[in-house]
Simulated scan of single mutants.
Amino acid sequence: MTRIAILASGNGTDCEAVMTAVEQGEIPDATVAVVIADRLAPVLERARRHGVAALLIDRRGCGRASYDSALATALAEHRVDLLVLAGYLSMVDGVTVTTYRNRIINVHPSLIPAFCGHGFYGEHVHQAVLDAGVKLTGVTVHFVDEGTDSGPVILQEAVNVLDTDDAATLAARVLVVEHRLLPQAVALYCSGRLSVQGRQVHIMGEEKK
């Protein structure tokens, strides 16, 4: 049984997509052990409605070292196997990355390596896409390493950018894909189908085209 911790900072719809997928058996042999927020946010109430432990570790109320220590303690207490970052706006510290190497999954609202890295989060990403005039954006689910949005890619899916889009409409369509792709990646991990070799993530059992 894979014990999952979901880390989030905001509304929590990606978090809820994962919790629902676990409840419906779409993510095999898994349980969401805890949802952790780094600020007071609606995601905590979403977790409670699903009967999941909800923990606030307020990043703004303590220093970085204290926050990292409190997070490490919480993960150990809940015997966490896999971390899922679902709209989590804090950086994961290096000790946690090392401890959970290839066991931290993040979702990002663009096709990495485009529109990612420092400062690219939330609607900032979508506005940058529109400002650049590109025709495609999308969603990337990847493992977390010591960099920012730089870990090995698990899944990606493109989303068309429409001439009529603004940041809000584009974000809404991208979010629909996030809600599908993030649980799918978590399910692949929990079913033991992901193999990481350097920068490449191989999906075992996937039919070759």
Rank of each mutant, 00 (worst) to 15 (best):
A74N: 05
A74R: 00
L75T: 00
R79T: 02
V80P: 05
L83T: 05
L83N: 01
L85R: 00
L85V: 09
L85M: 14
A86Y: 01
Y88G: 01
L89N: 10
S90E: 11
M91L: 14
D93V: 09
D93H: 06
V97S: 04
V97M: 08
T98I: 12
T99V: 08
Y100W: 09
R101C: 09
N102Q: 06
R103A: 15
I104Q: 00
I104T: 03
I104Y: 01
I105C: 13
N106L: 00
N106K: 00
V107A: 14
H108D: 05
L111I: 04
I112F: 03
I112V: 14
A114L: 01
F115V: 02
F115H: 10
F115D: 05
C116M: 10
C116P: 14
G117C: 11
H118Y: 13
E123R: 04
H124I: 09
H124W: 05
V125A: 02
V125I: 06
A128C: 07
A128G: 01
D131Y: 01
D131P: 10
G133N: 10
V134Y: 08
V134M: 12
V134H: 11
G138P: 09
T140R: 15
V141M: 14
V141W: 15
D145Y: 10
E146P: 14
E146G: 15
G147A: 11
G147L: 10
G151D: 07
G151L: 08
L155C: 07
Q156C: 11
Q156P: 12
E157P: 11
V159S: 08
V161R: 00
L162E: 06
D166L: 01
A168C: 13
A168H: 08
T169R: 06
L170I: 03
L170V: 07
A171S: 05
A171C: 07
A171W: 02
R173E: 01
V176T: 15
V177G: 02
E178K: 03
E178D: 11
H179Y: 00
H179G: 12
R180G: 13
L181Q: 11
Q184E: 15
A185V: 12
A185D: 04
V186R: 12
V186L: 11
L188P: 12
L188S: 07
Y189L: 05
C190H: 07
C190F: 10
C190K: 07
S191L: 10
G192F: 01
R193I: 13
R193A: 15
R193E: 15
Q197N: 14
G198D: 03
R199A: 10
Q200S: 12
V201R: 09
I203S: 12
